[in-house]
């Protein structure tokens, strides 16, 4: 492994090859993909509240859809960063993604409780 190039990471355009037999970048990216799909399921289930709650239900639905969409849109970049990170032996912990994912789940929970009791 060469140990240059941490900082901003990716360089090569054609998906950097990494030598990780544990396939960490794949597994992590797919884990995000599953989380995105689970988020879409939550969004679709929420639409079932429409008859009792009315159009307000689309607020948490939109939160979930946007969250799921952002995950899918950032997947290629995520793979590139993580594969390069394995190659250079340095991955910066993805603090922002963790925070936003948490904010999304907690706000769906909060909006859901409001939906149950107020509407």
């Amino acid at each position: 492994m060469d140990s240059k190039r941490p900082r901003g990471l990716p360089r090569r355009r054609l998906g950097p090859q990494h030598a990780d037999p544990g396939l960490q970048p794949e597994r992590t990216v797919m884990s995000w993909g599953r989380t995105g799909l689970a988020t879409s399921v939550v969004a679709l289930l929420l639409i079932r509240w429409y008859p009792s709650v009315g159009p307000v239900v689309f607020v948490p639905v939109a939160v979930a859809i946007v969250g799921a969409g952002l995950i899918q849109v950032s997947q290629r970049r995520r793979y590139r960063v993580q594969a390069a990170g394995i190659h250079y032996e340095k991955v910066v912990a993805d603090f922002r993604a963790v925070v936003w994912m948490t904010v999304m789940a907690v706000s769906i929970a909060g909006l859901g409780v409001i939906g149950v009791w107020v509407f």
Binding site: D20, G22, Q24, P25, R27, T28, S31, W32, R34, T35, Q82, G85, I86, E89, K90, V91, A93, D94, V98, M101
Partner: peptide
């Protein structure tokens, strides 16, 4: 080790 950072991320997910 970057592998541990990614493993931690997957556990969170």
């Amino acid at each position: 080790d970057p592998r541990f950072t990614l493993a931690n991320e997957r556990t969170f997910l």
